[in-house]
Write a protein that binds this DNA or RNA. Structure first.
Lengths: 234, 234
DNA sequence: TTAGTCTTTATGTAGGACATATCAAATGTG
DNA sequence: CACATTTGATATGTCCTACATAAAGACTAA
């Protein structure tokens, strides 16, 4: 009897909506977003003042400010003392970092992000071959050489340095920053391994391929390098 | 004299920090983050009540609530009427969407994100071959077949449907949602083209490869399919 | 034990008050 | 008239108080 009750409740919670107790600040936040989009403000444009907005929305200045505070955090608006508020351009990744920071991510998402990183590394080849320079390759080689006579404690650091340099060589700033954000995750998953899982292709091998090989060669090399990680996927 | 003065000021403004007018809410937000991290709360743990926090931080409840409102938006904490606040697990991507939404992104970042998408698609192959099912392939084929006799207005929609399905087949939820977020960007860049840039490998070709070809075949196919986009990179 | 009621309490919301920084106009000076 | 200075107006930042509301926990009754 009891068990049945519990079951039905569990089922319910799956089916029914999670009962979002919309607080006023939530509603106002949404309305403000819509307002900004609808009016198609350009960065730098001035916004109405707090009291006007609060009155128009029919909420206290307090609630309005909570909503504004959120948008301000995201970099969507900026405020100055007398001048009022202006629309700004948010730093996409900067805000992303804020959430990733405390690392309170459930395991399934963690795994997803780790895979995301693998996907990125595998797909990097084209960009790399379009933009690589001799200087870059030399730097990459230096990084790879350093790690030869190193104890295990430095292994991860070198791993990070090498792959980080690869992202940098892609010439894509967003990608590079994105990768930096994902580092802790990569780190975490790697440390889950008991012993270092080395692919059949080393970092130095990859550098060599970059020097003389084709894009196809590099893709195969990277695949072999990451193979141990792929092997653990199911 | 005057010019010199102006010059030196300009130089200063480049060198010096941008004078972050730290509002109390900003400081409190940071302090709360540190507090949460330091105490290493686990999801579900109860937090002190607002008044206690406000007093401990030496700020008004108002300021504290602005900071809390931010964390609440990011999904880092949840609050219930009497129970107080509890630590929650943030929805990584959900917050990302919020910033991406208004599409006030500068062109260089736009380009970066477009490239990011290309990288993702190129790197998807391994995951795809690990997890693809016959059912998936059949659905993908249906999507590809639909687009044969279609006017241009549906072209983008089909493009989106096909590639979206690919992400779905990766079995990576985060990746899938990430791709959805990036759609508007992809859309935007694609519409910049005057005429459709078709690669030498069509969607149907890709499906065929998925059926009978190897991972390597698929990678080459995808590369050819996206070649027009890569050609535009510099 | 179970069901129902009451009390307590932490959050949600409102409104007023004042400090502060800054823009803009008024004022003074050569 | 042009330029520097002062003054006033104003929007945001911060604080405070008060009350509504929902929900946990205690208490009571069947």
């Amino acid at each position: 009897m009891k068990d049945i009750n519990i079951m039905s409740i569990t089922d319910l919670s799956k089916d029914l909506a999670p009962i979002i107790s919309n607080t006023m600040a939530d509603v106002v936040e949404t309305k403000l977003r819509e307002y900004l989009k609808k009016k198609s403000f350009k960065p730098g444009d001035a916004l109405p003042k707090e009291l006007e907005l609060a009155e128009a929305l029919g909420v206290s200045r307090n609630v309005l400010r909570e909503a504004l505070s959120r948008l301000r955090m995201l970099g969507m608006i900026e405020t100055k003392k007398k001048r009022g508020m202006i629309l700004a351009r948010p730093d996409i990744l900067g805000t992303f970092e804020r959430v990733l920071d405390p690392l309170i991510i459930d395991n399934s998402t963690l795994q997803d992000i780790f895979e995301l990183r693998l996907v990125l590394e595998m797909g990097l080849a084209e960009l790399l071959y379009i933009r690589k320079t001799d200087k870059d390759i030399k730097e990459l080689e230096n990084i790879a050489k350093k790690e030869i006579n190193n104890d295990n404690s430095f292994r991860i650091k070198n791993e990070i340095a090498f792959h980080g340099k690869l992202y940098e060589m892609s010439g894509n700033d967003t990608l590079k920053r994105f990768q930096i954000m994902l580092l802790p995750i990569f780190d975490y998953v790697v440390t889950l391994e008991q012993k270092p899982t080395r692919g059949s292709v080393s970092h130095l091998d990859l550098v060599e391929i970059l020097k003389t090989g084709t894009v196809e060669d590099f893709k195969k090399g990277m695949q072999a390098h990451l193979q141990p990680h792929f092997d653990r996927l199911k």
